[in-house]
Write a protein that binds this DNA or RNA. Structure first.
Lengths: 351, 351
DNA sequence: TAAAGGTACGCAATCGATTCCGTTGATTAT
DNA sequence: ATAATCAACGGAATCGATTGCGTACCTTTA
């Protein structure tokens, strides 16, 4: 297979009897080039199949019009939506998106971080791995003035842009909702407590209980490692076998909540009558399963878009100037069947 | 914020009294550099915080150790898994992954294609948009010897690497399964017929009917545009209101299948007793919903991994040499509750 | 011991786009 | 009429890594 010679600005220069400088300026709409010349050059460029070489431009400018994304896993509904939001916003501004997943391992996060750095990305968007505690691998970006936006799973000992939801309020509201439904023994599926999103959700849970005068029972608070389906299954089985089982569960994610509901069904415990459940994330599954899962909705795609705008804004594009350092987005309690004790008679199509 | 000067191979050269050539060769383990020197240089590089500049290397080599991915949408379970598989494989080989989504629009596909080309990617992995018919925008990659791997939604008028599943057999088997369950009036939710994956699935459906001596009824074959939830809802409603409604549905994706089940429930039609349903993709939702959805499983992540290996292999890495031009992967019929008429009494926990 | 071979490195061009300084000719101001 | 201004463009260095060719020195062989 023969490889066609690529067309460069030098080829254009020779063809049109201009200098490469003029070609470059024309293609970038530089003001010191006449409109006529610009039009001429652009048409010739298109005609000859010229395509800019981002590597060359990037080398010269020491940046690549590329946003790097560093997350735990792509194939999770929240993450996929987040990336989608990032990509859409970046693309509109002419930026590319480099992705990498850590699989929640610190070591991978570090090496991916380096790989993205080596590509001279314009900015970095990060959702921390479960394991990450030390933040040293991010320092080199700061040293180079490369903006970092932490999303969702953010550090609290590192100063940078952050885009988060109000996890405390969300946790509080979710728990309050269960209390309003008449639950008095509410369990909590808590995530890893060194990730502050889970810490905040738990705090909200605790405060809601306190405020309502309900006792806090340690045996009803289960600390998960990954909030997986399997973990949820185990935890639920254990809870429901207790002499005084819980009558409600607030899970820090939907996956574990779903497993709880399915486990309860298997054990003959009726949801929501005997056990009300509310999850977190509003995964697609939540609205489809039976009973449909009450949950807290995350504006994932929007968070991605905002994060991307942060990067673009930082590079002086002033894309959306009224963004603050830390962006806190609101959440929404989505009430579905899995938590509806009180109004059950009115809407339940289950059982 | 002051920006630290980056360390280059020239800085290392000056510091260690070697030439830049030697530094470069040492860092790349070139054989003409002594082990001692390599060790010395690498240690100094690490100590001084040297980080390679991919842009410079890429410019020189005219490629960027980056795999470009061009898909319709990221936040679909299949696509997310596909990307995940690509990323994992690419990362292991030291490659980065650039993503872009077309949102199923031809125009976006073309411009994203150009953007990826401009970044001098090593190879391109594509799942075509619903709209795409003309393939001219891919030609420039071929002209430059840049490999393209089409995945899942592939063209049939363009010669390149392809990674697909056996859609015909899958469609045949899915339909046959419904027939085996005693269905005689089987409807088909068909995807856009200019995308051959949907064409093949339909062919399989038709042949299964023919082979079993069942009549083909055009009114039971619904052609969808996007196989969305809404479309599925409408189609199901229409079907179930027919004087002789179908007793089975083979849907070309899970989303529409789910909508069919939910619509049937609402209309008081029992699944699977009165209407057996089988979908396609094995989305996470399939195993969770009630009744659980029978479906055809796609090895999405594996398809991504294979596609990535194609690219790596093409660049002379000989990563996995026994891959053929077109890779056809098998599928699996996952039988769950939504299609189980015959053995219902034995396993159903529903109703 | 002289020729041959090998080891370990250096020189300088190269990749393509950008940009700081000019320069030229034309127009305007005084 | 002459200086000053300006529009429109060109020259050449620059970004950092790679690599073909060349060279100095050392070892081996006949």
């Amino acid at each position: 297979m023969k490889i066609k010679k690529e067309v460069t600005i030098y080829d254009l220069a020779k063809e049109l009897n201009y200098s490469p400088s003029t070609i470059s300026r024309a293609l970038n709409n530089h003001k010191s080039i006449s409109k006529k010349t610009i039009k001429l050059i652009k048409e010739a460029a298109a005609g000859m199949g010229y395509r800019p070489n981002n590597l060359a431009a990037g080398l010269r400018n020491n940046k690549s019009n590329t946003i790097g994304v560093l997350i735990s896993r792509i194939n999770r509904p929240f993450m996929a939506s987040l990336i989608s939001g990032i990509e859409e916003t970046a693309r509109k501004a002419g930026y590319n998106v480099l992705i990498s997943q850590s699989n929640d391992m610190y070591e991978n996060e570090v090496s991916n971080c380096n790989a993205l750095y080596d590509s001279r990305i314009t900015g970095l968007i990060v959702s921390l791995s479960m394991e990450t505690v030390d933040m040293a691998h991010f320092q080199k970006f700061i040293d180079q003035g490369i903006p970092i936006v932490f999303v969702d799973r953010v550090p609290d000992n590192f100063n940078s842009y952050k885009v988060v939801i109000d996890n405390y309020t969300a946790g509080y509201s979710a728990t309050k909702h269960l209390i309003d439904q008449g639950c008095t023994r509410i369990a909590h599926f808590a995530g890893a407590q060194h990730r502050n999103i889970y810490e905040e959700r738990k705090k909200g849970y605790l405060d809601a209980l306190r405020e309502s005068g309900l006792p806090i029972r340690d045996e009803l608070i289960i600390h998960f490692k990954t909030l997986s389906f399997e973990e949820g299954n185990k935890a639920t089985k254990k809870l429901l076998k207790m002499p005084e089982p819980p009558d409600g569960i607030f899970s820090a994610n939907d996956t574990a909540a779903v497993s709880a509901i399915m486990c309860a069904k298997k054990m003959g415990v009726e949801v929501p009558q005997e056990l009300a459940v509310i999850g977190f994330n509003d995964d697609p599954i939540a609205s489809i399963m039976q009973p449909s899962l009450s949950t807290v909705s995350h504006p994932a795609s929007k968070m991605g878009a905002i994060s991307a705008k942060r990067i673009l804004n930082h590079s002086g594009q002033n894309y959306d100037a009224d963004l603050t350092e830390i962006t806190v987005l609101g959440t929404e309690i989505i009430v579905r069947d899995s938590s509806l004790k009180r109004t059950r008679m009115l809407r339940s199509k289950t059982s």
